[in-house]
């Protein structure tokens, strides 16, 4: 108990926890795109950066309230998602992946070349307005939204596209429109997450949102268990905190981290919680309970 209190009041751990929550919000967006709808996106960090810069610039220049800036940042990212989505979601699999990756790189280079974003110098002096509490509230809200989306007519249509897009279309689903909608919602989440990130770090640099960050987010979604919300939460938490826990082997932590990525995939290619269904767990549990009762 004492230990927990120490962690919760230590600024360093608060920072790590806040960051975990921020990444979780972006990861949930990617979960909707890749885990639920089955569309590859290798450029999620690019959308995060759109939200981050939009929100930060609004705060710096228009002094509008944070919540509004986060929302506008999310909408800007979502709008970019729609813009990219309409032409490119006709592509499938790796082609879509590489297109999204390319888009994110272009966004990054554009931010490097813009004056208002501070170019390669980065954008400094953003007020620290993101708190752990705010991040928790937004993250919980995001999880709640995601659950509702997945258990609805809308979510079923997305899952149908993931499972078999030709059959989905034959069931009356306009697959392109639904993919674009999933992309819009997913990138909206990335944008909101980016806005929170900007007001936590107080400094933005285009290099923060490169390919590596995009692939990190993909890792969060896949390693926990693709298509599962608990999996995404688990993946994000473990992978954001793992490098922190590996600090005792500081020099080798990235080496261990990357080796674990390979080992994880070999032994659990569907992720930690992949193929585990809550319903099955509950059923297995009740079955065991009833056999225990019977034996008594």
């Amino acid at each position: 108990m004492d230990g927990i209190m120490r962690i919760l009041t230590d600024p360093y751990y608060i920072q790590v926890l806040t960051l975990t929550g921020i990444y979780l919000i972006a990861a949930l967006g990617l979960h909707l795109i890749t885990g639920v709808t089955g569309q590859f996106s290798f450029g999620h960090a690019g959308f995060m950066s759109i939200g981050a810069y939009t929100a930060a610039l609004l705060t710096l220049h228009l002094h509008t309230p944070l919540i509004l800036n986060l929302l506008v940042g999310g909408l800007a990212a979502g709008f970019a998602g729609i813009l990219l989505g309409f032409p490119s979601l006709k592509l499938t699999g790796d082609y879509l992946g590489i297109t999204t990756l390319g888009f994110a790189e272009i966004v990054r280079v554009v931010f490097i070349n813009m004056k208002i974003t501070g170019g390669t110098q980065g954008l400094a002096g953003i007020p620290k307005e993101t708190s752990l509490l705010l991040v928790i509230v937004v993250a919980v809200l995001s999880v709640w939204c995601m659950y509702r989306i997945q258990n609805s007519r809308f979510g079923r249509a997305l899952m149908a596209i993931r499972e078999d897009d030709i059959a989905a279309e034959a069931m009356g689903i306009n697959t392109l429109i639904y993919k674009v909608k999933a992309f819009a919602v997913g990138t909206f989440f990335a944008g909101v997450s980016g806005g929170l990130y900007a007001h936590l770090m107080q400094y933005l640099n285009p290099f923060d949102f490169g390919v590596t960050r995009s692939f990190d987010l993909l890792n969060f979604v896949v390693l926990g268990g693709l298509g599962s919300i608990p999996g995404t939460i688990l993946g994000t938490t473990v992978l954001t905190m793992a490098p922190e826990f590996l600090r005792f082997v500081n020099k080798y932590r990235m080496l261990i981290y990357s080796a674990l990525m390979v080992i994880m995939m070999i032994f659990r290619p569907n992720g930690l919680l992949g193929g585990v269904h809550l319903k099955d767990l509950r059923r297995a549990f009740t079955r065991r309970r009833s056999t225990e009762m019977a034996s008594q």
């Binding site: 007519r153 079923r156 899952m159 149908a160 499972e163 078999d164 989905a168 298509g227």
Partner: peptide
């Protein structure tokens, strides 16, 4: 061409897409 990883009921619910 079923939606293999979804439940039987969800498969059929998706069939109702056009009329909802």
């Amino acid at each position: 061409r079923l939606f293999k990883n979804l439940t039987v009921l969800d498969n059929v619910k998706i069939g109702c897409h056009s009329s909802s």
